[in-house]
């Protein structure tokens, strides 16, 4: 198929950036979206132009490295799908496709479609852990029985891949879904309860300091999240936050 691509090009953090039109032919419907961009880049290199920079790594939907705002949606139009798992069969011959980077002040553009998401790491560093040293002498794993439902809920929250689609899609550039996934995971587990109060307060403080917006419960994040992280987690975060105030 033939496609018209409108791609954001920005030479560096200080460049203003602009949309540039590209035409591409011979796209196979079995190709992934990123393979389509690979093909474009090969053509650009052959023509002596600079290839489009974009983040990607595992290409199987788990590392969270790929991003891209495609036709006005984070990770494109498909649900529960990262850009690397989006296939060209979702598009039609002759389509025009807009490709933009995640846009949020907390995610400055590095180049073209590549943004700096280190703010998310710093939020995790503020409390996204259980303070237990490596010893090999902790209690036996089966000494802490955990109801299956709680373990499953914790797992569901823990499947966040930290891609930042929630921030990119949120009209407020809020990172609440991301933060809540970690808070909720540990809130559901007895091991995590010990530091629950400090964790939620510190992580929210870090989130605010990094320049993310606040949550207005539009639910867009949940819909665009490639891993289906539920809005429930934000409610859990709020509850944990209230509980923490009483301590």
């Amino acid at each position: 198929m033939k496609l018209n691509l409108k791609i954001w090009r920005q030479n560096g953090p200080n460049d203003k950036g602009r949309m540039v039109d590209y035409k591409i032919d011979g796209v196979d419907s079995d190709m992934s979206f990123l393979e389509m961009l690979d093909m474009l880049n090969e053509q650009l290199i052959a023509k002596g132009e600079e290839p489009v920079a974009f983040d990607h790594d595992c290409r199987e939907g788990i590392c969270g490295m790929c991003s891209l705002y495609i036709n006005g949606e984070a990770h494109g139009p498909d649900r529960l799908t990262t850009t690397c798992q989006l296939h060209m069969r979702k598009f039609k011959d002759g389509d025009t496709i807009y490709i933009e980077p995640w846009r949020a002040n907390a995610f400055p553009v590095i180049k073209d479609l590549v943004v700096d998401r280190s703010a998310l790491d710093r939020i995790q560093q503020a409390g996204g852990y259980i303070s237990v040293n490596t010893s090999g002498r902790t209690v036996d794993a089966n000494n802490i029985p955990i109801p299956k439902k709680d373990a499953d809920d914790a797992f569901d929250a823990a499947t966040c891949i930290g891609c930042g689609a929630c921030v990119a899609t949120c009209k407020n550039s809020s990172a609440m879904l991301f933060v809540s996934a970690k808070v909720a995971q540990f809130a559901k587990l007895p091991q995590g309860r010990v530091e629950a109060a400090d964790r939620v307060q510190n992580m929210i403080a870090a989130m605010d300091a990094e320049g993310f917006g606040s949550c207005t419960n539009t639910g867009a994040c949940e819909v665009e999240c490639p891993k289906g992280i539920s809005l429930t987690n934000i409610a859990i975060l709020n509850k944990e936050f209230l509980l923490a105030q009483t301590k």
Binding site: M19, G72, Y98, T169
Partner: peptide, 13 residues
């Protein structure tokens, strides 16, 4: 910097 093309109707009311 706003999105050139945004389609929020796809994910929220």
């Amino acid at each position: 910097v706003k999105y050139v093309k945004n389609n929020p109707g796809a994910n929220s009311s």
